[in-house]
Simulated assay, not measured.
Amino acid sequence: MKYPFLISIPHGGVEIPAEVAGRFALLEQEIDWYCDPATRTLFDFGGSVEATIDTPVSRMVIDLNRPPLPLPPRDPDGVIKVRTVDGRQVYLPGQLPDLPLIHRLMMKWYFPYHQRIDELIDRYPVEIAFDCHSMLPYGSAEQNDAGKPRPLICLGNYGDENGRAKPGSLATCPADWITRLGDAFREEFGGTGDVAINTPFSGGFISNAHYWRKGIPWIQIEVNRALYEPQDTPVHQREMTEEQIPALRNKIWSVLTRFWDGIAVEMSREDHQ
């Protein structure tokens, strides 16, 4: 049995294309750390879902979860990074990609990713999509929650803390769905940390844009990296604890399937009324 899920993993890649190699002010290990380490493994549910999309390229080269405009330097944390989330310069002086190079990167990595999402939704019986990420345990210097501890799990649908649409906007999935998914995470991870909705992250460009384009419900999932990274080493030297990843993936899968089984039962009842 395949679950009708689309799994999007836009920030798990660590590759640096040749076009930008040697331009970075950050070390290779630091570049990896500013991505979403382990998410390509953590959210790899194989043939148990209808569709999965990820990318090998580092988000520090091109961020697939940002709108295509504005370009740098107007948005330092946009599709092309100028600064990290804690204020460090990404590129060496004079090495920030120029417009022709940005265009090549966008044509090679950015637009194909978004086109592929639409193709997967059109081709397979997808009924819900999850945009899957990890987050640092504390807010970084240039983020709205700077210095504050983060929940164990953050779920986003562009709504309020209860998943309801904010005035003048749309939520990317029903409030009941995201709150029920939150309850399933709390049940699975009971006693180990909080599960929050739309705080500190309410969703990114991928879930918002493709909900508008296709109407398929989207939920952004952020998993706290404290669940799989040791916190007693210098931040740019941390590596994931390999043996924790399979167990954590199994717990996340248990949550997603239990949540959807409940939703599917209710939809079936409604169809027969």
Rank of each mutant, 00 (worst) to 15 (best):
Q95A: 11
A171L: 02
Q237R: 08
G203P: 04
W253H: 12
I216N: 06
T39H: 08
A21N: 02
F130A: 13
A141Y: 09
I221N: 08
W177I: 01
D122C: 09
L155H: 09
V235G: 12
W33R: 11
Y34K: 06
S48H: 07
G78I: 06
W109T: 09
V195E: 07
F205Y: 14
R258G: 11
H133P: 08
R74V: 07
K81F: 12
T241Y: 08
L42S: 09
R74A: 15
Y91A: 02
A226N: 06
T172H: 07
Y3Q: 10
A184R: 11
K251C: 03
M267I: 08
I245E: 11
K214S: 15
P149H: 01
A171H: 06
M1K: 10
I178V: 15
E187Y: 07
V57E: 10
R225C: 03
N250G: 12
E30C: 09
H103T: 13
D261M: 01
E50R: 00
A171S: 13
R164E: 13
S8K: 03
D86K: 09
E266Y: 06
A18H: 11
G47R: 05
H272D: 14
F111L: 07
K81H: 15
P149V: 01
R249D: 08
E30I: 02
I153V: 15
E50D: 13
D86I: 07
R59I: 00
P4H: 02
D160E: 10
G203Y: 06
T241A: 12
E119Y: 00
Y110S: 04
Y110P: 04
I153R: 15
I245L: 13
L69Q: 11
Q29K: 08
W109I: 04
A264M: 01
R258Y: 03
H133W: 05
R59Y: 00
L136G: 08
A141Q: 10
Q95R: 14
G13S: 09
P70K: 07
A247T: 15
G78L: 03
H210D: 07
F111E: 14
L227C: 14
L92R: 14
I53R: 03
G47D: 14
F43E: 14
F130Y: 12
A141D: 11
D32N: 14
P167H: 03
F185G: 04
Y138I: 03
Y158D: 07
D44W: 00
I31W: 01
G12K: 03
H11A: 06
C154L: 04
P68N: 05
E242K: 11
P4S: 07
T172A: 02
P72K: 10
R88Q: 15
L120W: 01
A226V: 01
W33H: 12
I197T: 07
R66N: 13
E243Q: 05
Q237K: 07
C154F: 05
I102R: 13
C154S: 14
S8N: 08
G46V: 00
F130S: 15
V195T: 10
V255R: 08
I221W: 12
T55A: 08
A226Q: 09
